[in-house]
């Protein structure tokens, strides 16, 4: 019973920089440090983490933060792309270039393989999408590689079900999220306890907004796929969105493609990601555009969220990103 109390000493200590300490810390630096803290905590406490990398802006920022967290050492875990097979070619090119430049290890989980093996069935019709099929591919890959922590780039400002999710989000042996029974999460003390077969989804960007992401991309000079900036492309107007004309898109009766100057606010499966009219050609201009917008990111561009009021919650319960 050795109770060695050393010293109680939190009294004020004169510091030449006292004034600086009283200033509120700048928000971008706070968000960056919070994300790095979360990423390091996972690397220290889990045996086999993986970082989901789609080639979208949020996962690119997340990877950028992860590389900073361990610099000058290499990333201590791989990244994984859940490949729907319905990619924009610019995104795949970017993925391969970025993986080569950063030296990270890439795991690809293929929706096409899940279809070929009969794990899932392809949707049909003009609104067919492989978006929902990704969940099975993702969960199969997590089981196959025995990943116990899976970093995702989801943000709470994206969607109302995501606004409810913890930074460490527990998934049972079926990969399911139980939103009514989440672990309390206090201060920056994260509880990653799980049994074999269960895993934790980890969201280091939980407290970032779309505008924070763009400000950070501009400030850090982070490279993104060209789709995020204004360019001319053939599009089809559908459900109030502009869908890119790609070989994956089946035109419905009466739909006529036309040319437009657009950029993408989100990048996902090419069949359900819409473009917005924009002339913003660099990150600073995009940030200015986002600061003035009156429509949410997913509301403007994601057909998958329009399924129902609880579309995202239902998909997340099943194990979606």
């Amino acid at each position: 019973m050795t109770e060695a109390v050393t010293h109680v000493g939190m009294s004020a200590r004169p510091s030449p920089r006292e004034g600086a300490d009283a200033d509120p810390p700048p928000l971008p630096a706070l968000l960056e440090s919070e994300a790095i803290h979360i990423i390091r905590e996972v690397a220290a406490e889990f045996e086999n983490p993986v970082l989901l990398f789609s080639g979208g802006k949020d996962s690119i920022v997340m990877l950028h933060l992860a590389l900073k967290a361990f610099a000058p050492c290499p990333l201590p875990f791989p990244v994984m792309h859940v490949d729907t097979g319905h990619n924009f070619p610019e995104v795949l090119e970017f993925r391969d270039r970025h993986v080569a430049a950063t030296g990270v290890r890439l795991v690809v989980a293929s929706v096409q393989e899940s279809i070929d093996r009969g794990r899932v069935a392809e949707e049909t019709g003009p609104r067919a999408s492989r978006n929902r099929l990704q969940t099975t591919t993702l969960l199969d890959a997590i089981a196959e590689h025995r990943f116990d922590a899976v970093f995702g780039g989801a943000r709470r400002d994206e969607e109302k079900a995501r606004a409810k999710e913890r930074v460490y989000s527990f998934r049972d042996e079926f990969g399911q999220w139980d939103p009514k029974n989440q672990r309390p999460e206090l201060w920056n003390l994260y509880n990653g306890r799980h049994r074999s077969g269960e895993h934790i989804r980890v969201f280091p960007l939980s407290n970032w907004t779309e505008l924070d992401i763009w400000r950070y991309i501009a400030a850090e000079g982070i490279d993104l796929p060209s789709l995020y900036y204004a360019h001319r492309r053939s599009v089809v107007a559908r459900d109030g969105m502009l869908l890119a004309l790609t070989r994956f898109l089946t035109l419905a009766d009466g739909e006529a493609p036309f040319e437009e100057t657009v950029r993408f606010r989100t990048i996902g499966d090419a069949t359900c990601t819409g473009a917005v009219r924009s002339g913003a050609a660099d990150a600073r201009r995009v940030a200015a555009e986002i600061a003035a917008t009156r429509i949410t990111e997913r509301g403007a561009t994601r057909a998958d969220d329009r399924v129902s009021e609880a579309g995202m919650e239902d998909r997340k319960r099943e194990g979606y990103f």
């Binding site: 109302k160 409810k164 939103p179 009514k180 919650e313």
Partner: peptide, 17 residues
Amino acid sequence: GLRAEREQGITIDVAYR
């Protein structure tokens, strides 16, 4: 934001805005 919350008209878990 949760289905159960809208059904019951109550808040079950924290929502961050």
